[in-house]
């Protein structure tokens, strides 16, 4: 099963947030098809360091598809040419010998480049801070089984909550819209009785923050859902629209 392939990499290099970037081309020989994409990047960096060059900076951490840190735009797709994976779960067997791979950072006005392939996604935290929580402090809460929750609701909330905040939705959206991200959080909490209490306030505040931060308007193309490594559905966007409009009409 294991095979070695040779690759040509076109990698975006940018020294800092304000600097101009450019593509650099690198050749890489004998990459095992059993390696992950990021291990291939490790090999590239090892080669660059040994040649006395600066390695390529890219975000990554858990390398098992859950932290949401990795964020490469590979050959026209966020997280590359496989479905339901993050970049770190992408493996080299998805590429052919001799292939040229173009590697870019997430592009969106909401995600400015910090260095090379690393972008700033603090906007997502700011949106969560605007209302993506239940306003309960530690202690003094009722027993966990005090409020029964229908299994279907709990399961649907779980599906929405599985968002890892990677930003692939924004990266692929032709509008640079963060609606899938925002809707996943609004849905997760709106589906549960604990979150319903402040559902209206949450929807309004999070949407207002999203707009303020310069993310685009959703035009329902559904590209986000296709590229979401966790398969978060755009049905959540419908729910967000519903929650938001309901909230606004009650004002």
């Amino acid at each position: 099963m294991e095979n070695n392939i040779s690759l040509t990499l076109k990698v975006w290099r940018q020294n800092g947030p304000k600097e101009k970037g450019r593509f650099e081309t690198y050749k890489l020989e004998k990459v095992s098809t059993d390696s992950s994409f990021l291990e291939m990047m490790d090999i590239l960096n090892e080669q660059l360091i040994n040649d006395g060059n600066e390695p390529v900076a890219f975000d990554h951490d858990c390398r098992e598809g859950i932290c949401g840190m990795c964020s490469l735009y590979i050959n026209g797709r966020p997280h590359g040419p496989d479905d339901d994976v993050t970049t770190c779960q992408l493996h080299m067997r998805k590429f052919k010998d001799g292939e040229t791979i173009t590697i870019e950072p997430w592009r969106s006005a909401g995600f400015p480049v910090i260095k090379d392939l690393i972008v700033n996604r603090n906007a997502f935290d700011t949106i969560i801070a605007a209302g993506g929580y239940t306003s309960v402090s530690t202690g003094g809460v009722p027993d966990a089984n005090a409020i029964p929750i229908p299994k279907v609701d709990a399961d649907e909330a779980m599906d929405a909550a599985s968002c890892i905040g990677c930003g692939a939705c924004v990266a692929t959206c032709k509008n640079g819209s963060a609606m899938l991200f925002v809707s996943a959080k609004v849905s997760h909490l709106a589906l549960l009785p604990q979150g319903k209490v402040e559902a209206a306030r949450r929807a309004k505040n999070m949407v207002a923050k999203m707009d303020e931060l310069g993310f685009g308007n959703c035009t329902n193309t559904g590209a986000c859902e296709v590229e979401c490594p966790k398969g978060v559905s755009i049905s959540n966007i419908a729910r967000l629209n519903r929650e938001f409009l309901k909230a606004k009409l009650q004002d």
Binding site: Y133, T134, V136, P142, D143, A144, A154, D155, L192
Partner: peptide, 15 residues
Amino acid sequence: IDQCVAQGVPFAREY
């Protein structure tokens, strides 16, 4: 567990 449920952690549930 009580705290997490109050925060909206979607633990698995029975029917």
